[in-house]
Design a protein around this nucleic acid. Structure first.
Lengths: 243, 243, 243, 243
DNA sequence: CATGAATGAGCCTTCATTCAT
DNA sequence: TATGAATGAAGGCTCATTCAT
């Protein structure tokens, strides 16, 4: 039995190695730059072995997405459990997305890939379910915070605005901001000097726009942010140098 | 000379045809689905002729991005010249992005492609400059509106917030929202029913967050939107069915 | 010793299982559709074990041919021992080929494969001998009947016609007819409605052509056929639904 | 225009070269031994060029079958037009099949391949139609002869025997006989010394069996055969050494 | 200038066979 | 003796690019 567990561990380790290698390749040279031959060479396994773990190229991308999704859900859950007022917890979600991007650059790219190219078609339903589940998990965490804010009286939404719509706004803003930062290295030249900081400010502006209290001028969210990093994500903060 | 101008016109026309064809291919079948053979066949020109216009496949993508950028700048300029208060003009910018997406679906995809794949490396500096110029053009139009808002007293920015940062927020929100709508067909299943409307509300929430007057509860921006469509983009509105 | 016999029995059983599995695969998906992985999976033995029984893929095909040959010899011998006049016994041979085809579809295919592909080269001489022996066995059974017909005065062959030539005729006719039926599903569209019945009639026409008595118009060979099925191949007839 | 005809000729020539090469490969090393790389190498064209003529491997087999079918129809038509009594003309059909086998060994193999492997599935309907048309052409020629025999009073068929059934008999006998000769090089060791001659005798025995006059003992069909070779197939006879 | 046949590197994938455990 | 992961050669096919006509 110890044999089988050791083997299982080896299998897992190899799978991780393959995924890490593939991820790096996509990040560096794009989807077309990631190919099975190169993965085989880089991992020092044979092509056949790679195929024993992943039935085809698309499966690798899908696995990468699922894996990333799971990591993100985990971060989101921890963020949502931050000890503080709802808006502080939502701030923690923002911090977690920042950390996620720093810890796993290239994963956003993977997700885009998954939609852009016709990879989806080749992915078995089961994996698509997994993927959807992670998305749902993230959404649940975030919507929960908005609902808590409403319950606790920090936020009053107009009749025609659902909690999900607020989430969608923050999601759009964050996803868009991070994408732009990744895609346009010349943001500085267009006048956007500190894009990451600007993104944070915009997140708060959006919450202010919904009159989600306490408003940013009435609360020290920088202090909150420091607390989040220290209390909820100490390791990640250290690893990424976000302190 | 009249000969050479006719020829020049023909060249331009052909170039446009090639680009339109390529664009449609990427939109329908992804980057891998666009190939020189198919373009040649669809345009009814020979492959050699295609190569006389574009040195390689990447050039086509780059040209498509530039062209799309130019079209967008034009829309932005018209939006910015809308006759109304700055926030109304910014609303017009939002409308123009909506129209742009409807008129040129697939262009967002092209832009992502340009970054995702290692196309950039093969693109000559001159074309990169053109591309950058269009982005700058958009930015200028938008920043101009923010500045006007400040000048006219509708908006007061804190010391640590530059007009560009506000633009970045709206840009992020819009780009992110549109990307999510395109990429996640199952937004409805996650609770986001009317994504496009939600995006517009979020844009206004963000401006409200910056206390950009008149606030959304103090002004009928739906009416503004109708005016924009009717006065500034009548043709585009008709073409896209946005009324 | 009882141990070793049990083991020998197990080995045989496993070998049979492997062959049955392989046979079904070839019948269903062609030679390329039969591969070692699939056999291993279907038999629930490991690939290594398969290789312990058969040195390579070609050996399996060869073994399948030998095995099929042996089954056929057995059927032929039983047919030849049918209680009746020589031409009736030859009719029994015809019935046995019909039954064989129904009981082991795909074996004809195997034999063709054995010749078509360069499998022969990889087959050891010993197995080729076995294969040849089964063919000889069939031939012996059939030639014996022709000789008996001559001896009993039912058949008089010209000087330049050997009993083997008559056998060759019937063999060709039957093999050809069965191959055509298997290969051309559209025989009906060419005007050949009841191919199997037509084949039987042609076999009798050929024997009539050699003036092998009793002629078909002078004997009820349909009754003979029914007797053969009932007396000599009751089980096979039941299994194939030939009644 | 002369350019285009020259080009067309070149294309045809190349196509023929590819088909000839492929045919030889299948004949020598089986279907699996014929592969696109090897064809490219043998023809001294690049793989891409081969694919410009044939969309895939299966297309080559299909083309080979069609081509062979057309050649056969032509031979059959000429045979059917032999100047003589119907049974002599049918003898000419037999001669044509002999010549065909000698002129195009390996084509029978191709046809078997076409059925054995799942090549059919990949063949476009249009080519299947062509193939079917050639078969129909052969059938028409042969059935026509049988009908003429009936009309001219040389042959009287029982009510339950259609002309097509007689054709099926001769087809089976010939196809089967030729297949056996090709597949079993050791027929001699089984007692069948002169297989080709035996096949001819069996064909006549079959016709005798149907009482198709003049019977073989009442007519010198060897002389007929010589006439056929000399009058109808002089070139083919010379080329194959059949005299 | 236009053409489109020719090229061939490169990609994804399969599978017979081996061999350490 | 059984296992099945690992191997890697080989195969079918695509497509950007070139160049003779």
């Amino acid at each position: 039995m110890s044999t089988s567990t050791r083997k299982a561990r080896e299998v897992q380790a190899r799978e991780r190695l393959i995924l890490r290698t593939a991820e790096a390749m996509v990040a560096e040279r794009g989807y077309l730059g990631m190919n099975m031959d190169r993965i085989a060479e880089a991992t020092e396994y044979s092509k056949g072995t790679i195929y024993q773990h992943f039935a085809n190229k698309e499966e690798i991308v899908a696995a990468l997405c699922v894996e990333g999704g799971e990591r993100r859900v985990e971060l989101f859950r921890r963020a949502a459990s931050f000890d503080g007022r709802p808006r502080e917890r939502m701030t923690a979600i923002g911090v977690s997305t920042e950390l996620y991007l720093l810890l796993h650059p290239g994963h956003v790219q993977m997700e885009q890939l998954f939609h852009t190219e016709s990879i989806r078609e080749k992915t078995p339903e089961s994996r698509l379910q997994l993927l959807f589940a992670t998305e749902l998990g993230c959404m649940d965490a975030v919507v929960g915070i908005v609902r808590d804010a409403v319950t606790e009286g920090d936020l009053t939404l107009p009749d025609d605005v659902a909690p999900e719509d607020v989430c969608f706004g923050l999601w759009s803003l964050t996803y868009g901001g991070q994408s732009l930062i990744a895609a346009k290295p010349h943001l500085g030249e267009v006048g956007i000097a500190e894009a990451a900081a600007a993104l944070r400010r915009n997140q708060h502006a959006l919450m202010d726009g919904y009159a989600w209290g306490p408003a940013s001028h009435a609360w020290d969210y920088d202090a909150t942010r420091r607390r989040i990093l220290a209390e909820t994500f100490p390791e990640e903060a250290a690893a990424t140098g976000l302190v």
